[in-house]
Design a protein around this nucleic acid. Structure first.
Lengths: 202, 202, 202, 202
DNA sequence: AATGAATGAGGCTTCATTCAT
DNA sequence: CATGAATGAAGCCTCATTCAT
């Protein structure tokens, strides 16, 4: 992402190993994942972690950046889909499938991480807002839904499914469907609370 | 925990202070809350914490036990309400309001905790199942919803709201309403995945 | 020094053990002395070091504070001696003897340490200035010597002697005598550089 | 070190760059100077440092060797000066000026370094002894001064001056003058301790 | 019964040194 | 030869838990 110069072959390989290992460990243990475990899982020495990511937070930031970037790309593409409602559902599906691989819900605690992350996150907010606007205009979702609601609800299916110890890896699909049904205009009841205003986590 | 003999008056008071302090600290810092902080907040020495709760996990278990017990009591009462749909919604509202005070979502990581906890949790499952069965029979919720779904979705509103940094303390109401709308028969679309089978966390 | 409440007997003992051990280790290895070694030498666990001194720097500050305090006490007393020249020499002798036990020359690198330390150091500067003023007025030292010179030269005898591997522990006396002879008016040649102005290390 | 064969041109240049960079870094940070910083300052890779100097200590030894060699050269020359007292003072001035550029006082901690260093150091001792002998014979310094005293006192002016944070770079001149006055016969008082016998550091 | 001192495992990070490229 | 990636020992510090007072 920072694109200084092409990494040496082995270094590039280790970087990928590290990102994968870190994703896995963070997913399992949240922010408490230990550098030692990440290094072990990646099959490298502890010091190598720090060569690639100066700090534990930097490592986390790199992972998050990748994920949000991918979402942004997908979101931009879906803006050009004909069926706005299907596009929004597709976006949520992609987000959930990604999150299935790495639950970043713990990021809530993580404050700002990184200005780079802040930037892509802002981009994502913008994209989601546009996806929601389109869907609302076509009547694909209820009128009282805001973009911020979608961003918040985006993580819920995985969260819910994660409480089941040995669940099917696709269980989140069930809860995404339920929640999406709640977003449709058909059986909508008035909402007792306005949407939140602005900033929030990943 | 196993209720051997009635505690001395001051000991009982300390126990309550500790539970309250621990709840607050766990809510703020998740599993990383430190025993030292809990002791300080309760106004007792660190040693006293361990006199009452042999282990940090035991302390956590005691808190969870309290919460689930309260839910069970509320659930039993609601089983006798006339409007089964309203009863279910009320139950979810109570659960969310409680969780608003102490977010236990981190418990996911906490494994089994305690056999005592397992017991009351099983009770709660049973109660919720009955609440859901009644609501389904009256057509207050869609036919393809299981008790397990409700238990899982129970935590979602708080989880979702918690992502907003300085949110209104009642923001969860918005998301509970949306999710509950998704549970209604009116706009239900078929679900792409069956409900989970059995065990799961708090 | 901070006098919060009387320490428990064993804690007080450990504090003293730690100060002594730390002094020894700092003397041997400078700022690079390791907490582990200090703990080992004191016969306590590593954690105990941090219970007494929240930080390595705090430990250092505590030691330095003790030393400077002792010098201040001695200095105040010597201000009332009849022979001002002898009083100054005596002060330097006390300082050197103390430093013989713990070379703090590495403190130069140590920046500010602590506001407490800053305070007693300022006191010491004041006291030394008065000692020097008196000596100068009586003609016991040359006219072109400032208080700051004495403070700087104070550490030189030990420093010089420290370069001799297995020296007599009193070797510093030789160099203190030589340097003090250089401070006398008798064979004084004009100095090629004015005294420094203000702040400096311990 | 052992001068096997003439270095290739670029290798020789790197060696000089490294020595200069290392001198600067050691001067700033003492023994804690990092190889990475030295390499960066020299504009070479870390590996190159180790190609030239097998070990951090070897690098240090090479620097020290250079310095002592320079002193030896100057000393030999000064042996032929007419005014033996002025020659000794000049030697101390040269030594102090050199040390002003690179404070090696931390070398005290550095143990033996190297047999090569031992050799040139022994040479220096010899030279200094002869300089002192001449000065003593002419009555330029007091009778009770030994060569070893001069070697020890040689470092004192810089050491003393180094305690002043933002001092004039020539402050050492002041303290060299004072100390040298202490070496003169004019106001000499009997010394309370004999000179040390033999070996000592750089 | 309560306290808080002591402990030591474990976490993050730095850095001299080795080695593949 | 030069480079910089990899390594792992070692350093500081935190904290759950034990135990003397």
């Amino acid at each position: 992402m920072t694109s200084t110069r092409p990494l040496r072959a082995d270094a590039a390989r280790n970087r990928q190993l590290l990102l994968a290992a870190a994703a896995e460990e963070f997913a399992r243990h949240g922010l408490d994942a230990s550098i030692a475990d990440i290094a072990r899982r990646a099959g490298v020495g502890k010091g190598t972690v720090f060569r690639h990511f100066a700090t534990k937070d930097d490592l986390l930031a790199a992972i998050v950046l990748d994920r949000i970037d991918a979402l942004n790309t997908a979101g931009e593409r879906l803006l050009h889909e004909a069926d706005a409602g299907a596009a929004l559902l597709e976006f949520l599906t992609i987000a959930a499938r990604q999150r299935q691989q790495l639950d970043l819900s713990f990021l809530q605690e993580a404050g700002e991480l990184n200005s780079e992350v802040g930037k892509v996150r802002a981009q994502m907010f913008h994209t989601v807002n546009r996806l929601v606007d389109r869907a609302r205009e076509r009547g694909a979702v209820r009128a009282d839904i805001a973009g911020a609601d979608i961003i918040l609800l985006m993580c819920a299916p995985n969260y819910v499914a994660s409480y089941v110890p040995d669940a099917s890896p696709d269980l989140w699909q069930r809860y995404l469907a339920i929640i999406f049904d709640g977003l449709r205009p058909e059986g909508a009841h008035p909402l007792p609370h306005p949407p939140p205003v602005a900033e929030h986590g990943a």
